[in-house]
Amino acid sequence: MAIEWRPSAEIETLKARARLLTRVRAFFAERGVLEVETPVLGQGGSTDVHLASLSTRALTGMESRTLWLQTSPEFHMKRLLAAGSGPIFQLARSFRDGEVGARHNVEFTMLEWYRPGFTLVDLIEETTALIKALLPAPNLPLARYGYRALFQRHLGLDPFTAPLDGLRRLAEQRGHMPAGHLAAEPRDTCLDLLMSVVIEPTLGRDEISVVMDYPASQAALARRHQDDDGEWVASRFELYVEGLELANGYDELTDPSEQRARFIEDNAARERLGLAPVAIDERLLAALEHGMPEGAGVALGIDRLIQLALGKHRLEEVLAFATPRC
């Protein structure tokens, strides 16, 4: 059988990709945001139950130790912020095991940036400006939606109060799964499935859609706040174009004790689901203890944005060598 050695993307597509990346760097240069580079290996990985980190054994001096391929450059970039870097951005190689498909690749490029002193509203405006600078339809309007309101509109339920058994049955039905398939799954798994199958395809149609006020349990590394109804929610947003999630932004958590508690809680959840625990990044926690400036940060899937900008149907069409061909 012949070995497929050619790149996934056409050479002309890769030239267009390079031009778009040049535009990204110019965007941040005009705003005085410093480009940085951080390691793809770290002492800790992502404890998030929805992410599968890759690890390797490496000789570091006289000892062999486990190092983790980073699912995003977040931890290292926050250490730079704590060291006084000011606003920074990075086009970072990132890794997530098992993520292969029309919108995913095990190895991909994450555009991530941090803005000390920014609010979420400030960051939404800047993220929207960047997207408009790259897309061929720069006049797309911006629309904001509440997570709860979207579930009420599209599914007729309140995601914060709906009984778990009913959520499981509905997620099985809308996800075309056999009855009982989600019988042991937690609330957030069911909500994520319903969000991806029912709601996400409707977002970003002739607009840039921003979703805010996710459940507090989905805060990850973001702060939490009470909404107008007194419900605790995550201080974060996700941004969509053409039904495709492009960006995930946080009002960044800076409390080291709270962050440690969340890491421990994540690993406990991983063990309950039969997943291996992931090493906690103690250097990140030490940086937060030292003091990280208040502000907002966002991770944007630049490969996906390039895919949209160039009118391609699959992510592999804008990657030199997608995972199956690496």
Rank of each mutant, 00 (worst) to 15 (best):
M1N: 06
A2Q: 14
I3D: 12
I3G: 04
W5I: 14
A9P: 10
I11Y: 13
T13P: 09
T13Y: 13
L14M: 15
K15E: 15
L21Q: 08
A26V: 12
A29Y: 04
E30I: 09
R31D: 11
R31Q: 14
G32S: 11
V33Q: 04
L34A: 14
V40Y: 08
S46K: 09
D48L: 12
A52C: 08
T66H: 08
L69S: 05
L81I: 07
A82E: 00
Q90P: 01
Q90R: 01
F95S: 01
G98T: 10
E99N: 10
V100C: 02
G101S: 13
A102E: 13
A102M: 01
R103Q: 11
E107T: 06
L111P: 02
E112H: 03
E112F: 03
Y114G: 02
G117C: 02
V121D: 13
E125H: 08
E126R: 05
T127M: 04
T127K: 00
A129L: 07
I131M: 11
I131V: 13
A133Q: 11
A137K: 09
L140V: 08
A143S: 12
R144N: 07
R148F: 05
Q152C: 05
Q152R: 14
T161E: 12
A162C: 04
D165G: 14
L167G: 04
E172D: 09
R174V: 02
R174W: 07
H176I: 00
A179M: 09
G180D: 09
M195R: 12
S196N: 13
P201K: 10
T202R: 13
A216T: 03
Q226N: 11
W232N: 00
R236S: 07
G243D: 03
L244M: 15
L246M: 11
E252S: 06
D255E: 04
E258S: 12
N267G: 12
E271P: 04
A276W: 00
A279T: 15
D281K: 07
E282G: 10
L285V: 07
A287W: 05
G291N: 02
M292N: 05
M292A: 11
P293V: 08
G295Y: 02
G295E: 03
V298P: 01
A299M: 04
G301I: 02
G301Q: 04
G301E: 06
L305V: 13
A309Y: 10
K312F: 03
K312D: 06
E316I: 00
F321C: 11
T323V: 10
P324H: 09
R325S: 12
C326A: 13
